[in-house]
Each structure stands twice: as structure tokens, then as C-alpha cells.
Computed example of a mutant assay.
Amino acid sequence: MHPPEDTERAHLLEALQKQKNQLATLRITGTPTTVGQGLVSLAELHGLLEDHAASRQCYEEALGMFQEAGYKPGLAQAYFGMGVAKANFEDHRGALELIAKAAMLFNETKDREGEAMCRACVGESLRALGQPEAAEEKYQEALILYRQTRNTGRTARLLLDIGDIRMEKAEYEPARKRFLEAIPLLEQGDDSEALALGHLLLGESEGLLGNHEGARSHLLRAVELYQELHDHVHEARARWDLGLSCYYTQDLPAAREQLEAVLPLYEEQGRMDEVAKVRNILAHFAARGA
């Protein structure tokens, strides 16, 4: 998750203070369940501000409140939040243990959305621990649940994750199919970052399968979206890939255009090895009169 922009951060800090004030009143007048829910809301705001230590403390206190009340939906939320906080501190084994408890409680309370979220997060931690096959299995379980709840945004994100695992295993055709399935779902939503990633990954998979003409339109769309998002790291990746696809389709002027555009992006990021590589290619083009 990227750190919030200044304006967004100011709004979050304002919401955090309001929630603290409400919680102070709830501690006097509320039940253990309502106090716990107030703590969960406070924990979520701390999480959005990337203060994961404060978030974890709030979830731990909320857990105690929900245990006192015997409130299972709250217990599920608290265990999940504590697990996510551990994952943010790279304690993925600890995260797995807590999120597994949350998944069981979400299952017991028939909350398929919550259970799906848990299974997806378990997949992320397994992937971080270097277990891609086990991660894909959990992603598949989450995918089934998200399809049942018709959550197209989460479904699409999982399809990208599953496809990305297949890309790492050099299984480009199965990966391509996942990306093709994800993009129409992403077009329905407003997650520009996921849509850009979908086009980038689909373009890369097409290129790796040798379909460079087919790759070009997706990589060009990725470039446009990353420009709008001011994400220069991914824009550079998309432009480099697009330049290669143009080269392989013998459209040398288009290839040169992309390489010239990627050069300042690499320079801005201090990626001098890539800068040297691009300069060499451009010099080669110039020698050929391209």
C-alpha cells in the first residue's frame, strides 16, 4: 500500500481524532461489543495511516472486548486485523495462525466475504514465505467465495495474482487466460492501478508467447494508465516492454520512440545500468539509420 497523499492523510488524521473522541464516550456508555467495534474502526484508521503498531494494539484490545461479550463476528475481525498487522511487520507465520482463526470464525458466522478475504491474505503470506503452490491454492479458494458474493473487483485482483504466480513458473498460456478473464471485470470498476497492472501483465504474457503484435495494444494501454497514475516505475516497465514488442514487429520508429521516452524515467530512478543499455540500443538504431 502506498503512503497516503498529504490531503488524504489530513482527512484520515481528522477521522482518527473523531474516532478517538467517540471511543472515549463509548468506554463510559457502551457495551463490550460496541467498545470493541469502536476499537476496530480506530485500528482500521491507524492501518490506513500505516501505523501498524497502533493498529495492532487496538485490535488486541478489541479482541478482549469481543471475548468478554462472546461476539464471534467481532472476534473474526480482531483476529484478522491482528494477522494483517503481523504480515505488515513481515511476521508471516504469525499472520497465518491468526488469519486462520479469523477464517474459521467468518465461516461459522456465514460471512463469505470475510472468509474470502482471509483466504486471500493467507495466500499472500504463503507467497511471501516462498510457497507459491500453496498460495495459489488459497487464492483459488478465495476466488470461489468472491464469485459467489459477486465481488468483481476482488475476483479480478485474485485472477491477476494467480496469473502472476503462473508467470513466475513460466506457464505463460495459463497466465494469459487469467489476465484475459480479469481485464473485462476491471473495466467495470474504478481501480485504475489494477487495470493498468492487468494490461501490463497481459501484454507481457502475450510477448513471452511470441504474440508481439497482440502485446502492443495492451502495453500501450498500460503506459497511458501509468502516466495518469504518475507511477513512473511501472510506466518505465511498460514502455520498455512496449519498445521490445515494437522492435520484434519490425516497427523500429515506434520502438525508438518508446526507448527515448523510457530513458528519462530510468535516469529519474537512478537506474544507470538500464540507462546505459537503452543508450546502446538507441546508438545501434542510429547506426542502422532507424
Rank of each mutant, 00 (worst) to 15 (best):
M65R: 14
K86V: 07
K101G: 12
L13C: 05
E113M: 11
V278P: 00
E173M: 10
E171I: 05
E213I: 07
V233K: 14
P264E: 04
V223D: 01
V278W: 01
A287R: 13
D191R: 02
L160R: 02
L202P: 00
H284D: 15
R27P: 07
K110L: 12
E60S: 14
E181H: 09
Y248R: 13
L129V: 13
P174S: 01
G81W: 02
K18T: 10
M1D: 13
L186I: 12
F80M: 07
L16C: 11
V223C: 00
A76S: 02
R127P: 06
E173P: 08
A255Y: 09
L263P: 05
E274R: 04
D91R: 11
L219R: 00
R176V: 04
A222V: 01
R9K: 07
G64R: 07
I281Y: 03
Y172E: 12
R119C: 09
H212Q: 05
G83C: 02
R256E: 13
A135E: 12
L96P: 01
C121Y: 14
K20A: 06
K177W: 13
H284I: 08
N88G: 11
Q131C: 10
M1W: 09
A286N: 10
P132M: 06
H46N: 14
M82G: 06
H218Y: 15
L42S: 10
A103P: 01
A87I: 04
A128V: 13
P174L: 06
L98H: 07
S245P: 00
D191T: 03
K101M: 10
E50R: 14
L259Q: 01
Q148E: 15
Y71C: 06
A254W: 01
E124K: 13
K277D: 06
E136C: 12
H2T: 12
V233P: 05
A287V: 09
L98Y: 06
A134N: 05
M1K: 14
R166S: 15
R221E: 08
W240S: 10
